[in-house]
Lab assay of single mutants.
Amino acid sequence: MPSETPQAEVGPTGCPHRSGPHSAKGSLEKGSPEDKEAKEPLWIRPDAPSRCTWQLGRPASESPHHHTAPAKSPKILPDILKKIGDTPMVRINKIGKKFGLKCELLAKCEFFNAGGSVKDRISLRMIEDAERDGTLKPGDTIIEPTSGNTGIGLALAAAVRGYRCIIVMPEKMSSEKVDVLRALGAEIVRTPTNARFDSPESHVGVAWRLKNEIPNSHILDQYRNASNPLAHYDTTADEILQQCDGKLDMLVASVGTGGTITGIARKLKEKCPGCRIIGVDPEGSILAEPEELNQTEQTTYEVEGIGYDFIPTVLDRTVVDKWFKSNDEEAFTFARMLIAQEGLLCGGSAGSTVAVAVKAAQELQEGQRCVVILPDSVRNYMTKFLSDRWMLQKGFLKEEDLTEKKPWWWHLRVQELGLSAPLTVLPTITCGHTIEILREKGFDQAPVVDEAGVILGMVTLGNMLSSLLAGKVQPSDQVGKVIYKQFKQIRLTDTLGRLSHILEMDHFALVV
């Protein structure tokens, strides 16, 4: 994948999101292997301009796509893939009243899908469409860049269908997702969380590099694949309309690839034109409109599966009536509230959605109805927002919020430890010299600072030695090549209790 991002070429006709291997024109390309080798690009942008032909009021008969309808489940399912879809609609009884809503608040519980998330729908649909058009064949390999849930859905379907599955996901995604993927037989590649989507090191860039190296491999490409919004247009939206008897006044959905909100909203605009569509985008993402909503100094966020630093091709923002931004604290607070007060075992993005819903639905009156999409299960986040310690460490809970008995030293300040200034190293000294210094002084790690004293990161003896043994660096290389740029900081005025929580999850903390 090139470091400079080429513009994806656009073909003359058809839909841009065809499933299957992508040609340089962004659509299915038939021909000899030699032709494909000559024409197939190194990668295709996940934010390529959409060429979708959908228009409100256009006859369904003019759609270029294969459409399906929700099917009634048999008493005995032939395999677990038949437990994807037909998820329950559940009334939220307490939270709406707590925040003064007059309307009825309903939750579409997508964590009841077989793999635990709304992404099971698009995973199965992308595979079925690729099999139907002859792209996927027995023994082929599926590769997908994902925040985890699409990966789980694909790995689940691949396990049943017999495909090899490789999932490329950023490091910030939970260990629970990784464990589930491994249990399903998927191979996992992790990428830096802070890598831009168009960087060769991003999950998108690495996935395309693997595709170019592995024979008979395919990126189904949830960011561009029409099967993504079509899955929701054909099934999720129809289920909502049936469950609500066609009567709903507002739908609120958090947005990642945009397939969920695009597919549902398009069908609702056709069948229930008075329904307002509300999009939820986390602070630090750029999906919301108008652009002024996205202006923030924050560039990272903890909530998973929603928000991006690019506009995915499948996201149709014209069908969203209003956007709201959400933050991590309210997302996790509301997710825990949904679990504790409503018994809905949902993930953090569901918290984002409901946090926005109780604001947006203030305009609705008694007798009206708001539906929220709860995308995934708490299963993926047992060591994250479900953990009091994690919430404390991230600053989303305060010590006084917890009532468990603490040891005698818990409320003492870090400054009472009488710490001395640490050994520091410059980023320009060599790895070999740094190892000598650390061994001589008896230290395992040291902060790396520039000549102005600005902290650049941390270097550890173990990481340097393993990097040297693996051949990633040489003793003569500058130590700046092996620094940890993500590390926890703590102030002298913070409590030892807070430091204790940090050290339970990290090997060190830097006192500043």
Rank of each mutant, 00 (worst) to 15 (best):
P2Q: 13
S3M: 12
S3I: 04
S3F: 14
P6K: 08
E9K: 14
V10F: 15
G14H: 12
C15A: 06
P16L: 14
R18T: 11
S19V: 03
S23P: 11
A24G: 12
K25Y: 05
K25E: 10
S27K: 15
L28Q: 09
E29C: 11
K30R: 15
G31Q: 05
D35K: 06
K36G: 04
E37D: 12
E37V: 14
A38Y: 09
K39E: 12
P41H: 11
L42E: 10
W43I: 08
D47C: 03
P49S: 11
C52N: 00
L56Y: 11
S61N: 05
S63W: 00
P64M: 08
H65D: 01
H65Q: 05
H65C: 00
H66W: 09
A69D: 10
P70D: 11
I76V: 04
L77I: 05
D79F: 06
K82L: 07
K83T: 10
I84S: 09
G85W: 06
D86E: 13
T87A: 14
P88E: 04
P88I: 08
P88C: 13
V90E: 02
K94E: 11
I95S: 02
I95R: 03
G96Y: 07
K97L: 13
K97T: 06
K98S: 14
L101C: 01
L105A: 06
A107D: 08
F111A: 02
N113S: 14
N113H: 08
N113K: 01
G115W: 08
S117I: 03
S117Y: 03
D120E: 09
L124V: 05
L124N: 11
L124M: 09
I127H: 03
A130L: 04
D133S: 04
D133V: 12
G134T: 08
L136F: 08
D140W: 06
T141A: 15
I143Y: 05
E144F: 00
S147R: 02
S147Y: 03
N149W: 01
T150H: 01
T150I: 00
G151T: 00
G153N: 02
G153L: 02
L154G: 00
L154N: 00
L156E: 01
A158Q: 02
G162K: 00
Y163C: 01
R164V: 07
R164M: 00
I166W: 01
I167D: 08
M169R: 07
M169L: 14
K172P: 00
S175H: 10
D179G: 09
V180A: 09
L181S: 00
L181H: 00
L184W: 00
A186E: 01
I188P: 00
I188L: 08
I188R: 00
V189G: 07
P192D: 07
P192N: 06
A195H: 06
R196D: 03
F197C: 02
S202V: 02
G205Q: 12
A207D: 04
W208R: 08
L210H: 03
K211D: 06
K211I: 10
N212D: 12
N212W: 09
I214N: 05
P215F: 14
S217Y: 05
S217H: 01
S217P: 06
L220D: 00
L220K: 04
L220V: 02
D221S: 01
Q222W: 00
N225D: 01
N225A: 04
A226D: 09
N228H: 02
L230V: 14
Y233V: 01
D238S: 14
E239Q: 05
L241P: 02
L241W: 11
L241D: 02
Q242T: 10
D249Y: 04
V252T: 12
V252K: 09
A253S: 07
S254V: 13
S254I: 03
S254F: 04
V255N: 07
T257P: 05
T257G: 01
T257S: 06
G258D: 01
G259S: 02
I261A: 08
I261M: 09
G263S: 01
A265M: 04
A265W: 02
R266I: 10
L268I: 10
K269Y: 02
C272R: 12
C272W: 11
C275S: 14
C275V: 13
